[in-house]
Design a protein around this nucleic acid. Structure first.
Length: 369
DNA sequence: CAATCGTGGGC
DNA sequence: TGCCCAAGATT
């Protein structure tokens, strides 16, 4: 190592130059890369559809959570063309439970945009990728690098952690993002941008972890600035975040004689946009007795004991639940529909609503894919 | 820039 | 248990 660095310094590359960390990371990656369903094996050409689909699903979502959804999507929508041709409801249903539902809507729009392109192929250029729905700075760089081996530097949470530690960047997130991006871009090895991007993510996910990083196993442990001072766990610095206030509401589970349940579809934008829900009140900052007036129809409502708690990213929610049984001929309230018991599993029900139904004793059987 | 937008898992 | 976090994008 020392010899190589010394030699390099005489060929106009300083010993502490840009290539050294990338070489170390790539050598580590060649031995320790994770095998993932969407990742090409060494020597294989990556499939842009798989890369894109996985990158969208992995936004703010763990590998463990994504894996089954990714497999299911590939089965149901084997190509971009198939995904583009599918009805929106099918896409939302396949996404239900994964969270951040605007991703599903943008995924569908992006598939249609790509399918409409010449040859139905993804653009290879980072700037063109960035223009597609649901593809932001990170994902554009990730697809360009991983699917097409373009020189690009995707910066996700893993990379932010590795880089802020390696350079001991004191500036707090999110203000430090431009500096982190510049530092990362300067490290990208032109021959292997895709491997470098994935290597940095693997490093952050398995070695340079948020808590108790395994510095002894890290290929960058020597030159890592944070490690030298023993402060690795204190990076990245983060601006304090404020927590959302508790909200309250009421939900109404209305079961028809044949077991059908009264549902409606939420507005396409905003929280749980486009997803199915049981009728309910607004969610307010204090418990509101008037919430019970939001019942979708007149019936013998029984308030169920207990409460459904749910935590969104920016606020916690407590939902009181009422249940009623109604006759077979009960008319459908405006904006609602009867969902047959057997097809509840085929509804785009977010987990909050699955909790509510479970609380009310309604079973949601998974419908075969 | 700051808010909004889900869910599950780990410690 | 409560808090932090996870391959961010959009407005």
């Amino acid at each position: 190592m020392v010899t190589a660095a010394a030699t390099a310094s005489k060929t106009r590359r300083p010993a502490t130059g840009a290539a050294a960390p990338a070489d170390a990371v790539l050598a580590w990656y060649d031995r320790h890369r994770r095998a993932l369903p969407w990742r090409a094996r060494p020597g294989e050409r990556p499939d842009p559809y798989r890369v894109w689909l996985s990158e969208i699903m992995l936004q703010q979502t763990t590998v463990t959570a994504v894996r089954p959804y990714f497999e299911r999507f590939l089965t149901r929508f084997a190509t971009v063309e198939e995904l583009a041709a599918a009805p929106a409801e099918a896409v939302m249903q396949a996404w239900a439970g994964l969270g951040y539902y605007s991703r599903a809507r943008n995924l569908h729009a992006c598939a249609r945009a790509v399918a409409a392109r010449p040859g139905g192929r993804f653009p290879e250029d980072e700037a063109e990728l960035l223009a597609l729905p649901g593809i932001g700075p990170y994902t554009a760089a990730a697809i360009a690098a991983i699917a097409f081996n373009r020189v690009a530097a995707p910066v996700d949470g893993n990379v932010e952690r590795v880089i802020t530690r390696f350079y001991a960047i004191e500036e707090a997130l999110p203000a430090a993002k431009p500096a982190i991006r510049a530092r990362t871009a300067a490290l990208v090895p032109p021959p292997r941008p895709g491997d470098f991007a994935q290597a940095m993510m693997d490093l952050g996910a398995t070695i340079c972890t948020p808590k108790r990083p395994a510095c002894a196993l890290c290929p960058l442990t020597g030159p890592c600035a944070a490690r030298r001072s023993g402060l690795q766990e204190t990076f990245p610095r983060k601006a304090p975040k404020r927590e959302g206030a508790l909200r309250h509401g009421a939900a109404f589970v209305c079961v028809r004689a044949d077991g059908a349940v009264l549902l409606r579809t939420r507005p396409p934008r905003g929280l749980l946009g486009g997803m199915a829900e049981v009728p309910g009140s607004d969610w307010t900052s204090s418990p509101n007795p008037a919430a019970w007036a939001a019942a979708p129809l007149a019936a013998r409502w029984r308030r169920l004991p207990g409460i459904v708690r749910h935590v969104f990213t920016h606020f916690p929610l407590e939902l009181a639940v009422a249940r009623a049984e109604v006759a077979q001929g009960t008319p459908v309230p405006a904006g609602c529909r009867w969902a047959p018991a057997a097809s509840l599993g085929g509804e785009a029900l977010p987990n909050l609503m699955r909790k509510v139904l479970a609380h009310a004793g309604v079973e949601v059987r998974p419908v075969d894919g």
